[in-house]
Design a protein around this nucleic acid. Sequence first.
DNA 1: ATAGCCGGGTGGTGA
DNA 2: TCACCACCCGGCTAT
Lengths: 230, 230
Amino acid sequence: MSARNRVVVDEREKPSGVPLLLKELGMMVDFRLLEVGDYIVPGYAVERKEVGDFLKSLYSHRIFDQAYRLREVYENPVLVVEGDVAQIINHGIKPQALWGALTTLTFDHGLKVFFTPDQTQTANLIYTLRRKKPHLLKGPVVKRTRKVEVLETTQLQLVSFLPGIGLKLADRMLTKFQTVRTVFSASAAELSTVRGVGKVTANRIVKILDTPYRPFLKRPRQLKLDENNS
Amino acid sequence: MSARNRVVVDEREKPSGVPLLLKELGMMVDFRLLEVGDYIVPGYAVERKEVGDFLKSLYSHRIFDQAYRLREVYENPVLVVEGDVAQIINHGIKPQALWGALTTLTFDHGLKVFFTPDQTQTANLIYTLRRKKPHLLKGPVVKRTRKVEVLETTQLQLVSFLPGIGLKLADRMLTKFQTVRTVFSASAAELSTVRGVGKVTANRIVKILDTPYRPFLKRPRQLKLDENNS
DNA sequence: ATAGCCGGGTGGTGA
DNA sequence: TCACCACCCGGCTAT
């Protein structure tokens, strides 16, 4: 039996029944306590979620943290959503929220998402994955999207990060001041010449700009005293 | 209605009902005779297949040719399989053949595969796709900021929004320059005095700061022509 | 993730 | 000057 037939499984996945099915398919199942991911086969890491859990982790934003960590550690992160897709819709979620989540997971996080109807098919999917060479075929299709040409968006997002400034106002400010630098050099009076920006907002912005920074990031060297624990 | 809300649809997709649903969602549908793909929305090309057709094109290997051509022409090829997945399994196909095909399409052909239960959800998916813009991820999701330390975190997040600057570097920059304003007033030379910031990063930052803004937000008055049509 | 609601800032108009 | 109002922002909630 080759190493290809091995799969490392997170212990908490035991009750799901999937590991048993994998054994029946002839794989060697190796239980561990995994920090990230549920199933590891050479080259691939699989996170399995039943539809209910998927929704939960969507509502709590947890799914995106998990996706991030998965992507950081493994080169081919896979998300398996197990159960009836239609059931997710009927659950009452706004469809646009569902598809929005799925598309950002696939396009922005580089996650490959599969839907399986039940545990048996989840096992089949993992089993099939095992025999795929992690990389093959002529051109490496996975093109790391280089971060060029997003200039305007970055400028806009930067400015719209100021308190009281959204996309609309950021656009107006940049149109008026031309560059990001001039926006961030402006005085409160100058800022409030922009339509939609009044004294209050302008002063809030200036406060952010001119208040001396008080480092609050943990430095490795420094011993940190307990400040607000009981 | 802006160009973002446009979708080019292959004429043969008309009877599927999806184009009508897209219209109801407020999109402008533009029928053409497409050589490859069924739905084109800025940046994405969608091939839609009902489960039956998917099986057929799987048996005949046609699906791989289509996937290849789709990938050749568009940067973000999407395959939508519409209908009940479980039905495919029950149809008698060997599960391994199904998952093998899907994984090959995903990993080797770089195709993004989505499963939708019906036409309505297919429409929702395409609709959601329309507004996605390639934005880059800096790291784990930004934690919700508590009201208290809002000032420092805002300063930090502002600076860390600069290209190549994460939380750690932002902290160093602010510690060195004291205020946000001075950071955003600094020259490339001054910026690169910060440890971890080199010439390249410094220049990228300066570019963001000093490049005159080209408004790209939709103005209500302005008529905008379709951007990626031939 | 997305949509919707609501409270509050902003600036313009008309009384 | 003041009061009303349309617009924009951002925070919260439900799905």
